[in-house]
């Protein structure tokens, strides 16, 4: 397996890991968003709570979720390793004048992926602590639907979003994710060598729509929940 480790530690291999984990997380975000939108179903949280129950108990989903944690960690760790390499490669001096000219991506996002990523990582930790950990620890009230007792995650979420500070924190985090995606989405394809004169503009367009729509979808949840408390 020497070739495999060689590949993974090479500059392009490291990037491929970033790309694949990134694409995996991109797919996850859609799933996550679809589920979360049920918070706005207006049914007192029934659909959402049942969905949460399903997601935490189904063995297949459970396996995928472990993959997901690994993916996040790998993406973060590789990102950190790359950032360190790049800092070293840049050398001790920075340019006195900074110009951010790029060709076909968001210049701000592209050159700040590591910082955006760090913020996102912190967000994920807080996010997991607030909801996932509470659920795991069984620190959530239970509700019963049709004779089945499930955790009232909806209640916890609703309670959290009564706090304006948290709402702002979530919305700002979504803006950060949007920027990260704005570069990350199309960059993942480029790293895999999927660049084509005819199709790349399409990928870039989809990436832009995705990078705006998905975080926006996440962001409206706390806003609406806060406004309708």
């Amino acid at each position: 397996m020497n070739w495999f480790t060689n590949f993974l530690t090479s500059s392009i291999g490291q990037k491929v890991v970033m790309s694949l984990t990134g694409l995996f997380l991109i797919v996850f975000l859609v799933v996550h968003l679809t589920g979360n939108l049920q918070l706005l179903a207006g049914d007192g949280g029934k659909a959402f709570n049942l969905y949460a129950e399903f997601m935490t108990t189904n063995p297949l989903i459970k396996t995928v979720s472990y993959l997901l944690y690994a993916g996040i960690l790998l993406h973060a760790f590789q990102g950190w390793a790359i950032w360190r390499k790049n800092r070293k490669a840049r050398g001790p001096h920075r340019y006195a004048v900074k110009v951010n000219r790029v060709a076909g991506t968001n210049g701000f996002a592209a050159s700040n992926m590591a910082w955006l990523g760090t913020i996102i990582f912190v967000f994920i930790l807080i996010h997991l602590y607030q909801f996932w950990l509470q659920m795991k620890m069984g620190a959530i009230d239970m509700v019963t639907y049709d004779g089945k007792e499930v955790a009232d995650l909806h209640g916890l979420v609703a309670a959290t979003y009564e706090n304006l500070g948290f709402v702002i924190f979530y919305v700002v985090s979504m803006v950060v994710i949007a920027y990260h995606l704005l570069h990350g989405f199309q960059s993942a394809f480029q790293t895999l060598g999927l660049n084509h004169r005819k199709y790349t503009p399409f990928i870039k367009a989809v990436g832009k729509v995705y990078a705006i729509a998905v975080p926006l979808g996440f962001a409206i949840i706390p806003i609406i929940m806060y406004l309708s408390k």
């Binding site: 090479s10 500059s11 392009i12 490291q14 990037k15 970033m18 790359i82 390499k85 790049n86 070293k88 490669a89 840049r90 951010n100 000219r101 790029v102 060709a103 076909g104 991506t105 210049g107 592209a110 050159s111 992926m113 570069h183 199309q186 960059s187 480029q190 790293t191």
Partner: peptide, 18 residues
């Protein structure tokens, strides 16, 4: 290239622009 200590490409595209 890796041995020479160049950095990892993160598709910033400043190279093409400049």
């Amino acid at each position: 290239m890796d041995e020479e200590g160049f950095g990892r490409c993160s598709n910033i595209t400043a190279c093409e622009a400049e």
